[in-house]
């Protein structure tokens, strides 16, 4: 719970700082706290949160998935390619791309559990393979919907109006559904408990009769499937995708958000709410770099890297301080007890 408070504080700080520097202290028109920008920010948070929740499952098992960005690309270019170039009907193309994404997770999971390959290696190869395949079958050509599928695109671009200027973007609805389902799975079902247990100690989980292989495979399937859903929404949002860089680095954004949100790469730890707030911090940062004039866009990665590092350091220091304070309190209690006893 402390972790969530801390990361929420960080979010508030970054958000306020962006507002101050981009709007209050700048001489041009407000650009951050506008209905248009906040709506867009919310949409990007939701899109990235969906893939971050996916990778959180894998991280909780103590694994990692580096292939997310390439899966997003495969789905992001594959979906319009099937519809526009190959002329597949929507009813066939949509389930196909989602099935492909899920199968990728299944293959990862099988290789990791049955062949005992390391998650890092398996998904690193995946990162290279799916990117290569995407560029291959599209001939490296940009894929898009042009002016077709207007209704479908509303899934990503539509919004539920709140005021005349501001509405809740549709991806937020998807995110809420995904997050609610994920949180329920993790906290309220036997499977979520099994997942956390094996993330902490796989051997003990196995000795307790948990089918650890099946749980790990499920985590990778969930991760790749959510990456697939993410890819679909990303491409519907921007209308077209270039195979060479669509979804580039997204796996790192997702992993960073999960870690910032309290997932331990050692496994067994993490909350969905934390992951969402972690994603929000990343997106607001990205937004602020775009809006604040005196931060060069070229140093975006450096800024994000530094903020995450500082966040993790502060978290670690806070943890130590708490432990020390507790120890001192105990010592005081103990000395009170012993002085009372010696006084008797």
């Amino acid at each position: 719970m402390n972790k969530i408070l801390g990361i929420t504080g960080l979010l508030a700080f970054v958000w306020l700082a962006t507002w101050v520097f981009s709007d209050l202290l700048s001489d041009h028109q407000w650009s951050f706290l506008t209905a248009y920008n906040q709506e867009n920010l919310l949409k990007r948070i939701a899109l990235f949160a969906i893939i971050s929740i996916g990778v959180a499952f894998v991280i909780i098992t103590g694994g990692i998935d580096l292939s997310i960005g390439s899966v997003i690309c495969l789905v992001g270019v594959g979906f319009p390619w099937l519809l526009m170039e190959k002329g597949w009907p929507l009813g066939l193309a949509l389930p196909t791309v989602l099935l492909v994404a899920a199968s990728i997770g299944l293959i990862h999971g099988l290789l990791i559990t049955k062949l005992k390959l390391q998650p890092f290696v398996v998904t690193l190869c995946g990162l290279l393979i799916y990117r290569g395949i995407s560029r291959g079958f599209t001939g490296d050509q940009t894929q898009g919907f042009q002016n077709s599928f207007k209704g479908l695109k509303l899934l990503a671009t539509g919004k539920i109006p709140v005021t005349t200027e501001f509405g809740i973007p549709m991806p937020v609805v998807f995110m809420v559904i995904v997050a609610a389902a994920a949180a329920f799975f993790l906290n309220r079902t036997v499977y979520g408990r099994h997942l956390k247990a094996l993330g902490n100690n796989e051997e003990a989980a196995k000795f307790s009769g948990i089918n650890t292989d099946r749980m790990i495979i499920s985590a990778y399937v969930i991760c790749s499937s959510l990456a697939g859903l993410g890819g679909l929404l990303f491409v519907l949002d921007v209308n077209s995708a270039q195979p060479v860089d669509f979804g580039n680095f997204y796996e790192l954004y997702a992993i960073a958000a999960a870690v910032l949100g309290g997932c331990s790469l050692r496994g067994g730890e993490g909350t969905i709410l934390g992951v969402i707030i972690g994603t929000a911090v990343m997106r607001v940062l990205n937004n602020s770099i775009n809006l604040i004039d005196w931060i060069s866009k070229n140093i975006e990665f450096a800024v994000i890297g530094v903020v995450i590092l500082v966040g993790v350091i502060v978290d670690e220091l806070a943890k130590r301080m708490m432990a020390r304070r507790r120890a001192e309190l105990d010592k005081k209690k103990a000395s009170v007890v012993s002085s009372r006893e010696s006084g008797r």
Binding site: T189, V190, Y191, R193, H194, A197, N200, A204, A205, S208
Partner: peptide, 30 residues
Amino acid sequence: KSQGLILDMNVRENMSLASLDRDKKIAGIL
């Protein structure tokens, strides 16, 4: 420590680890 317990989980969660699956409600709810 390495085979019997999930050290970072609490007493209740460790105690129920083997029987959770048997006692689960519909759809795997705890």
